[in-house]
Structures are given as C-alpha cells and as structure tokens.
C-alpha cells in the first residue's frame, strides 16, 4: 500500500500523541515536586487532590527555598556529595578499568578464581555488610598531614575508598573489553608497547561509551548514599545530601521546604545527566550490545 501524505501525517500525529501521553506519565511527579516547592504548606497539601498540584498557581514564592537554607547547610551537603561522588567516580573508573583490563586481556595464575569472586560480590546487598564494614573502617590506620592516626570515621575517605571498586563496574568493563578486537592489542605488543601503554594508548581511547556508563551508574549510587554516611559520619561538616534530608523531618514536617530541598539536590544529578546525555544514552546502549 502506497503511503499517502494524509495518512502519513495522521500517523505522525498519533505517534507524537502517544509519545506525549507517555511523557506525561514519566514527568508528572517531577512537575509536582518542583511546583510544590514554590507553595506554602497549606496550599501544597490542599492542591494534591486536584490538577492544581501540577500548576504554579496560587501563593507562589521562594520562601521554601529560603526556609530550606535556614534549616540546613544545603550548600555544604551538596558540596560534600558532589566531592565524594566525583572522587569516587574518577577513582573507580581508573581502578576498575585497570582490573578489568587485566581480567580481559592478560593471562595469569589465579585470574579465573579472582574474577569469579569479583562477580559473586555483585549479589551481596550492602545492608548485609554495613556493620562489619563499620567495625573495620573504625580501626583502619591513616597517615595524614598530622601524622598517623587510627580510625577513618568522620572523613571523606571513609565515604570514598570502600566504594571505589565494585563487581558491577568491573564486570561492565570486562564485558566491553572482551568485545574489542584482540588483534589491536597483540599488534601493539608486537611493536613493543608495555602493558601500561596498551591500556593507556590503545584500550582507553576506545572505551568512551563504557566509561560514560560506569560513570553515571556510580554517580547515581554515590549521590544517593544514605545508610553508610549515616553510620560513619558524625560531624555535620562531612554529611551528604541524603542524610541531610533528615533535617526536614522534625515533629512538624515542613513539606514545602522538603520539596524545595528535593528540587535543589536533584539539580546536580540532572545537570550531570544532561551534560552526559548524548554520550550516556549511546553508552548504556553499547553495554547492552555486549551483554
């Protein structure tokens, strides 16, 4: 059947209609959150029963944002989270890709056993090991500018170092590396490149997509940390955003301020996501190919 223009136009219209309806389903809680952050509590709660919940109508102001900043050091929390998240993501990309490089390309005694162990750790829920891990890090030594001392509590490192390496990230890299053409590696070795040079000059430049995937996955995990910082950080100066959410749940919950805080802490994630969007969607995609 030949495609006539009217029919084509109609089909396009239907397609967009469907796309838009689905988009509504995905976006409405976020619209609700952002709109609510501008409303006083009484109106916010009254509006939840009608479509007004999605509209910036009524008594609109930035008061909730001022309130949120008065109630908690929002900037500090966001800064802490971004710092911890950023450092972990960078270190994780380096260390996990190095390990994966070794697992994927090199042959050495014990490789298969170690790789099985790494993959088995994928299925250990963190809640399981939180307490043993707490006991461990509270006794670890650290050499700082002020000399040697014991215990990692109340620091950035305690929020970063245990999270650098994980099974999923290594597994992602291994699966990706295995699909790279092996001849490239061999060719560079024949030319006399060291393993480090092969990793750095040959493999890494080809790994953009998997790096982006691993980065965003780690970013999401780290930025949303709650239980771990809760038990290892007692000083406000190291607290991250999700623990900070607790500041808003007093006996009297200030819902408008909660929404304002949620909106504020979502901004860095959305920004990071939008920046990486192109690379990101392409890259999550590429891991699917290898799965």
């Amino acid at each position: 059947m030949a495609v006539n223009p009217d029919n084509y136009g109609l089909r396009l219209f239907v397609r967009y209609l469907v796309l838009c309806l689905i988009a509504l389903i995905f976006i409405f809680p976020l619209v609700f959150m952002i709109n609510s952050s501008f409303k006083p509590d009484s109106q916010l709660l009254a509006d939840t029963s009608s479509l007004r919940a999605f509209l910036p109508v009524g008594d609109i102001s930035l008061n909730n944002y001022f309130g949120a900043f008065r109630r908690a050091p929002v900037g500090l929390f966001v800064l802490n989270s971004v710092l911890v998240t950023g450092a972990t993501v960078l270190l994780s990309l380096l260390i996990c890709s190095l390990a994966a490089f070794s697992f994927a390309f090199l042959r050495w005694k014990g490789r298969d056993v170690l790789l099985s162990v790494v993959i088995a750790t994928l299925i250990i829920p963190f809640e399981t090991i939180a307490i043993p891990l707490l006991l461990l890090v509270s006794k670890l030594p650290w050499i700082g500018l002020d000399g040697l001392h014991w215990g990692w509590l109340n620091s950035y490192r305690v929020q970063i170092i245990p999270w650098i390496a994980d099974g999923l990230t290594i597994f992602l890299f291994v699966q990706y590396f295995k699909a790279l053409p092996g001849e490239l590696i061999e060719a560079s070795r024949v030319e006399g490149a060291s393993w480090w040079q092969v990793y750095y000059r040959v493999v890494m430049p080809l790994s953009g997509p998997v790096l982006a995937t691993a980065a965003i996955l780690k970013f999401l995990i780290m930025y949303n940390q709650y239980l771990w910082p809760l038990i290892v950080v007692q000083q406000e100066s190291y607290r991250p955003v999700m623990v900070g959410l607790g500041y808003f749940f007093q006996l009297n919950v200030a819902w408008g301020e909660v929404m304002a805080y949620l909106t504020l802490i979502t901004v860095p994630v959305l920004t990071f996501y939008l920046l990486l969007q192109r690379a990101f969607i392409a890259s999550i995609a590429s891991t699917g190919v290898k799965g």
Binding site: I95, A99, S102, G110, V118, T121, I124, L136, D166, I170
Partner: peptide
C-alpha cells in the same frame, strides 16, 4: 603485569566487600 593491574581493584573488593561478608 596481570596481578599488578588487577590488584588495586581486587584488594579493595576483598577488603571492603568480601571480608565483611
């Protein structure tokens, strides 16, 4: 080289996941 490249990652996983488990 194999051990050197894999060691940092594996050591971290061993210390902070396997051992506590």
């Amino acid at each position: 080289a194999g051990w050197t490249f894999a060691l940092p990652g594996f050591a971290l996983i061993f210390a902070f996941i396997v051992l506590p488990f």
